[in-house]
Simulated assay, not measured.
Amino acid sequence: MDWLLIALVASAALYGILAGALVPGARYRLSVEPDETWRTTAPCGHALGRGLGRSRCAVCGRTRYGPGAVWPAGVTVVLCAATAAVVGPRPELAVWLLAIPVGVVLAGVDWAVHRLPDVLTLPLAGGMAVLLGLAALLPASGGSWPGSLLGGAVLGGAYLVLFLAHPAGMGFGDVKLAAGLGCALGWYGWGVLILGGLGGLLLGSAYGIALMLTRGAGRGTTMPLGPFLLAGAWPALLVGAWTAGN
C-alpha cells in the first residue's frame, strides 16, 4: 500500500467519523410511521433543533437518540475506509463516500419502521445519476455513465415489476432505492449489476425464510428489504472497483 492510498484511506475514515456523527440523529428523526411527521424531540423531551443532530441530546448530554446510536456511526467509518482502500484515487470514490451515510440511515430507518423515506431515496437516485455523470468527465474514472443510467433503469424497473406483481411483499420505497443502487452498480458493468441485484434479493429471501422457520412468520409478514438491498450492493460495488483497477 503506497502513501497516497494510506492518506486516502485515512481521509475517508476521518470523513466517516464526521458523517457518522450525524447518522444516529438522522436515523432517529426519520424513524416514524408513514403518516407521522419527523421527530422533533429527543427521548428525554428536549428539542432536537433544526440540524440532523448529534448522537446525544445537546441539552442534557446523556440521552442517546434511541437505542443503538453507536453502531450506525461505527459502520459508516468502516464502510468509508474500506471503500477508499478498494476504489483508490478515482473520481467515483467521492460519489460512493457521499452515498454511504445516506445508505446507513436508510438501512436503520427501514429496519426500525419498515419504510424508506423519499427525502433520502429520491436524492440518492438523482444524485447518483448526476454525480457519476460528472465523475465520468474526469480522468481516471473507472466506470461508464451510460452503463450507470442503464443500470438504474434496469434494476429500478425490475423491482417495479416485483412491486406490481406482489405489492404486499415490498414497498415502493424499495423500487426507488433499487434505482439508485442500480446506477451505482451499473457504473462498473452488467456483471456487477447482476451480482449486486441478486445478492440483495437473496439476502432478503434468506432472512424471510429464517423468519418463517424461527418465528412462524407467514407470507404476508412485512419485513425490511432495504438493508438487504444495500448489503448486497456494497460488496458487489467493491468487486467492480477492484476489477476496474486491475
Rank of each mutant, 00 (worst) to 15 (best):
V9Q: 06
A13P: 12
L14C: 08
Y15F: 15
G16T: 08
I17V: 15
A21Y: 15
L22D: 14
V23Y: 09
R27D: 14
T41D: 14
A42F: 03
A42H: 11
G45E: 02
G51W: 10
L52Y: 10
L52S: 12
R54V: 00
A58E: 14
G61M: 10
R62D: 01
R62S: 06
T63F: 02
T63W: 00
P67Q: 03
G68T: 01
G74Q: 02
G74P: 04
A81N: 02
A82N: 00
T83V: 04
P91M: 07
L97K: 05
L98T: 09
A99K: 05
A99I: 10
V102K: 00
G103Y: 09
V105C: 06
V109Y: 05
V113C: 12
H114A: 11
H114T: 14
H114R: 15
L116V: 10
P117V: 11
P117I: 13
G127L: 02
G127C: 03
G133T: 08
L134F: 09
A136V: 09
A136W: 13
S141Y: 08
W145A: 13
W145P: 11
G152A: 03
A153I: 12
V154E: 02
A158P: 07
H166L: 12
G169I: 05
F172N: 05
L181H: 02
G182L: 07
L185W: 01
L185T: 00
G186Y: 08
W187N: 00
W187H: 03
G191N: 02
L198V: 13
G200T: 11
L201I: 10
G204Y: 03
A206E: 04
G208W: 06
L213K: 12
L213T: 05
T222H: 13
T222L: 14
W234E: 00
G240R: 06
G240S: 05
N246H: 12
